[in-house]
């Protein structure tokens, strides 16, 4: 792992520590409070703050996860080189696309 990837992983870890906590607490709070899916969508639709939070969350995850996955694959398999790096860029793109799509869907519902 280069120093640049290391720094990117550590910085996004800080973002994720905050974002995952907010995400989980919100889920538990909403479910235990008895909110229906309709109630939740009514709160998230058109909520720019909600969208901004999840955009940051998804981007941080899309940077963080492939860096870690790359290290795991390098340690546990013989996979090395440019093909691995390109595959990890692909994983990052998939995480970002699916995550941003989901966040936008809940925002625009």
């Amino acid at each position: 792992m280069s120093a640049r990837l290391y720094l990117a992983q550590r910085l996004t870890a800080m973002v994720l520590a905050f974002a995952v906590t907010v995400h989980l607490v919100t889920i538990v709070y909403a479910v235990r409070g008895g909110l229906t899916a309709g109630d939740i969508l009514a709160r998230t639709t058109g909520n720019v703050g909600f969208l901004a939070f999840y955009v940051v969350f998804v981007i941080a995850a899309a940077i963080h996860a492939p860096i870690g996955l790359r290290s795991v694959l390098r340690e546990w398999t013989p996979w090395r080189g440019r093909s691995l790096d390109l595959a990890m860029l692909g994983v990052a793109a998939v995480i970002a696309a699916l995550g941003l799509r989901a966040a936008y869907a809940v925002y625009a519902a």
């Binding site: 792992m1 280069s2 120093a3 990837l5 290391y6 290290s71 390098r74």
Partner: peptide, 13 residues
Amino acid sequence: RLDAVSGDAGCHS
């Protein structure tokens, strides 16, 4: 030296 200890073989692993 800092270049040499960075990278996939270096300290960050």
